[in-house]
């Protein structure tokens, strides 16, 4: 059984990863560390795991691996500390906010001989897995184009503070779909165009809508919307959708469209209650196995880097007004 720790609960996904660890037989939530002690202690109480205030003591406590869910810009320092302590690492997306940071994280893990994974749970979302399997069967023939979205609600807090997040919705909601495109098509993004801005909630200090265009190897053309455009009254948090145009047909996947529509008079707001499989279980289960087997997680640091490269290119394009090469 893999003894796993969580470093920082700044990113809300830490809570669902902690719950996944507790649900899985092959993993144990061994310890929690957070640079915000109050937040860490509350999470430790919630998930019945010990909180450790000292990072070095936490890393020396007998853990096999750590899941890092800090603010984006703090990923690198935590990965470096964990790698030097010989811990296997699963890092929340985006892996980093710069190519330099992402590369440094990959390098330190290679040097210290630990596995590094990027948390792209979409690869464990059943409808997306089924879509990939269908594409892999070959019956669609050549892929021509895709129109995608990763819309979301405004997350607030440090997500809108570029000093901690590195960017807004374009930073937050480009990497999932880039990773899915690379994974499904087996091709890299070569060029990026991006129009973005703070257009929905005035004065948040960062972009909350991005309209991106990619060119991929093989001449595949892609449109992608990365946004925090969902209103507070919208019945769910957001979406991941892909319309894939291919030689022999069209594949549409609306990844989280497994829901029951609920209309409750107390809430006075429609709610889409999801019933699909919990993708975090697949992600965390693979990480636990990677720790046990001393191998890289299935979704690697390199995968994280490739998505960071596209995001960095998107901001470069938004600034220059031109399509830029990755």
């Amino acid at each position: 059984m893999a003894k796993l720790g969580i470093m920082s609960f700044a990113h809300m996904h830490a809570y669902s990863y902690a719950a996944a660890i507790n649900e899985l037989a092959e993993a144990e939530l061994f310890a929690i560390w957070d640079d915000d002690a109050a937040r860490g202690k509350a999470a430790a109480d919630q998930f019945k795991a010990p909180f450790m205030a000292n990072r070095d003591a936490f890393l020396a406590s007998g853990l096999d691996g750590v899941i890092i869910c800090s603010e984006n810009v703090k990923h690198r320092a935590m990965v470096e500390a964990a790698a030097k302590a010989g811990k296997w690492i699963l890092c929340e997306k985006p892996l980093a906010t710069t190519i330099e940071d992402a590369q440094a994280m990959i390098d330190v893990c290679k040097k210290t001989g630990v596995g590094l994974g990027t948390a792209f749970p979409c690869r464990y979302v059943a409808p997306l897995m089924a879509a990939k399997e269908d594409l892999d069967s070959g019956r669609f023939g050549t892929i021509y184009a895709a129109a995608c979205t990763n819309n979301g609600s405004f997350p607030g807090g440090w997500f809108a503070d570029e000093k901690l997040s590195g960017g807004g919705a374009t930073m937050d909601h480009t990497v999932h779909v880039v990773d899915l495109l690379r994974w499904m098509f087996g091709k890299e993004v070569t060029k990026v165009y991006c129009e973005n801005g703070n257009l929905i909630r005035e004065g948040i200090g960062t972009d909350d809508v991005g309209s991106l265009h990619f060119e991929m190897e093989g001449g595949i053309k892609v449109s992608h919307i990365a946004s925090w455009n969902r209103s507070k009254s919208f019945p769910t948090w957001g979406d991941v959708t892909m319309e894939i145009i291919a030689e022999n047909g069209v594949l549409n996947v609306d990844a989280f469209n497994q829901k029951v529509n609920v209309y409750n008079d107390t809430a006075m707001k429609a709610e889409w209650v999801p019933w699909g499989d919990n993708a975090d279980l697949g992600l965390v289960s693979d990480f636990a196995a990677a720790c046990d087997e001393k191998r890289d997680p299935a979704i690697t640091g390199y995968d994280g880097l490739k998505a960071v490269e596209v995001t960095v290119a998107a901001y470069k394009s938004a600034k220059s007004g031109e399509m830029v090469s990755v």
Binding site: T142, Y144, A145, H213, S223
Partner: peptide, 10 residues
């Protein structure tokens, strides 16, 4: 800004 398939494939 725009992308299309024109006569690229079919």
């Amino acid at each position: 800004f725009s992308q299309n398939l024109r006569e690229q494939f079919d």
